[in-house]
Design a protein around this nucleic acid. Sequence first.
DNA 1: GTGATTACCTTGACAATCTAGGTATGTGCC
DNA 2: GGCACATACCTAGATTGTCAAGGTAATCAC
Lengths: 120, 120
Amino acid sequence: MPKTAQPAQPEILQGTLDVMILRTLERAETHGYGIARAIERSSGGVLAVEEGSLYPALYRMEKRGDLTHEWKTSELNRRAKFYRLTPSGRKRLVHEVEQWEKLSHAVGRVLAGSAREALA
Amino acid sequence: MPKTAQPAQPEILQGTLDVMILRTLERAETHGYGIARAIERSSGGVLAVEEGSLYPALYRMEKRGDLTHEWKTSELNRRAKFYRLTPSGRKRLVHEVEQWEKLSHAVGRVLAGSAREALA
DNA sequence: GTGATTACCTTGACAATCTAGGTATGTGCC
DNA sequence: GGCACATACCTAGATTGTCAAGGTAATCAC
């Protein structure tokens, strides 16, 4: 399975997948496939969640202690792993949202070139 | 030089360094060290530009054709490489700023959980 | 001369992501 | 029954961007 990687244009901002997963699961416990669809929908169709990014992310988040899963039957009668936030995951969600706000705002400032910065 | 990498908390959002460099150089031709200080300042002190990220970035952007450099003497009387945008770099700046706006806005929508998405 | 600052650079490791493959099962249609 | 399609999972390999940690050299203030 050798192949060339890296997208023509990245579909998501690196580092934001985890926090989006956490946020999605805070709203409703669901399975991987459902998480992907939910993020795509709530982003207005702008973000595409690739399965090759999603499943490794879920695995590492669970390993980190932020998620747990339970095998259940999906709405469409298929076996699916339903993920849920742990208390630690909730804490991380809050922290990561804060980080996102802080950093994205900072990037915005750099790109904007407001009077604020011209005077600094 | 074996060492453990990955920061306790990332200082910049991955993928945003290039566009910030381009934006900084659009404002004024300057050298690497100056770019780093300018980004730190215009971000309100939130972003830290590590040299180990900066110089490779400048190198790859120049190789890509978005920058050129010229050795000059800095304001403080030291030899320094002054970077300047190429026309291609200007085009890329516009495009990357658009991308940033689009993607960061999308992440915002996912994290926000507005009524808009609840109704979708 | 000593130390701080300016200014450059490189190596090695690592984490996140994508591409591209794969498996399996249920549903609808013919 | 057979087939396509959607749902739902998974992994390997490659690439990229970033960071940590080292280094060099010149200038300036003391």
